[in-house]
């Protein structure tokens, strides 16, 4: 066995430096022993995977993943834009692929983990109207329970905003959890208004009066399925209709 042969496992596990990896690949071309051993390891991947017990798939995983991958927000943005009477962004005649690509590049995605890590702390303290906490307060490790998650997604923003929203029920009340970061600074007197959208109708449902980072849970007003959540900048809280443009939205 040559010295290089010892790198097989590390090559398989991707822990070699670039130089060692290249050297090992050169070695592979000449060492049948390593080539065969590597092949055996790779061939086992499928039977190992197939032998594993099946796990229940988290609700909505497919739409979250494909939504992220395609960067698609088709269903969510239309009602939002109609509601605030903003002309849709100029229609361009790209192919679907190009459209998906450009959306993908524009998209600032936030891992869902970020949402989940903080959800626990917020949901534990449900009861009154809204709770805010900053990112650096650590979440308690206690278990928490929501009754049902109705929808979840990442915001698409025309500015720098990143974040996610989740609609869930607890004790027959619906709540909306939002987590946002990189909220641009507000001018004096301005605030971020959250809107829940049903069909074409927006309803003011929660206010955030800070920039930077924010996380909050709001009880949802009214009944019915929420199709999307949008954020505008407004001069006053809880107006009848949005007056500012949509700075971020998410289809649920």
């Amino acid at each position: 066995m040559e010295e290089r042969c010892h790198d097989l496992i590390d090559y398989f596990n991707g822990t070699l430096s670039a130089a060692d990896r290249d050297a090992f690949e050169a070695h592979l071309a000449t060492c049948d022993d390593c080539k065969q051993a590597l092949q055996e390891m790779q061939d086992l991947m499928l039977p190992i995977a197939e032998s594993l017990p099946e796990r229940p798939i988290p609700t909505g995983m497919k739409s979250r993943i494909l939504g992220e991958v395609l960067g698609s927000t088709k269903q969510g943005q239309k009602p939002v834009q109609a509601a605030v009477e903003k002309p849709a962004v100029e229609e361009t005649h790209l192919s679907d692929l190009d459209a998906a690509r450009s959306k993908k590049e524009k998209k600032r995605s936030v891992p869902l983990g970020w949402l989940m890590s903080i959800a626990a702390a917020l949901i534990l303290s449900l009861g009154a109207n809204a709770y805010f906490l900053s990112q650096d307060e650590s979440s308690p490790a206690e278990e928490f329970a929501m009754d049902e998650v109705k929808g979840m997604g990442n915001f698409e923003s025309t500015t720098s905003i990143k974040g996610s929203s989740m609609i869930f029920t607890k004790d027959d009340q619906e709540f909306m959890l939002v987590q946002l970061k990189d909220l641009p600074p507000l001018k004096k007197g301005e605030l971020y208004q959250l809107w829940t959208i049903q069909g074409d109708t927006p309803r003011a449902n929660g206010v955030i009066e800070q920039d930077g980072e924010a996380a909050a849970v709001f009880p949802i007003k009214g009944d019915g399925t929420i199709d999307a959540v949008a954020i505008t900048v407004e001069p006053e809280p809880d107006l009848e209709k949005p007056t500012g443009e949509v700075v971020a939205s998410v289809a649920l």
Binding site: L52, R55, P58, I65, G113
Partner: peptide
């Protein structure tokens, strides 16, 4: 979907991380 999820779960032992892994893959 099912094969990758149970496979990823074998590593992470966590639903959320498994979903992140699969998203990364696609």
């Amino acid at each position: 979907e099912r094969l990758l999820f149970s496979f990823a779960h074998r590593f992470t032992n966590n639903d959320r991380l498994s979903e992140e892994v699969i998203q990364e893959v696609w």
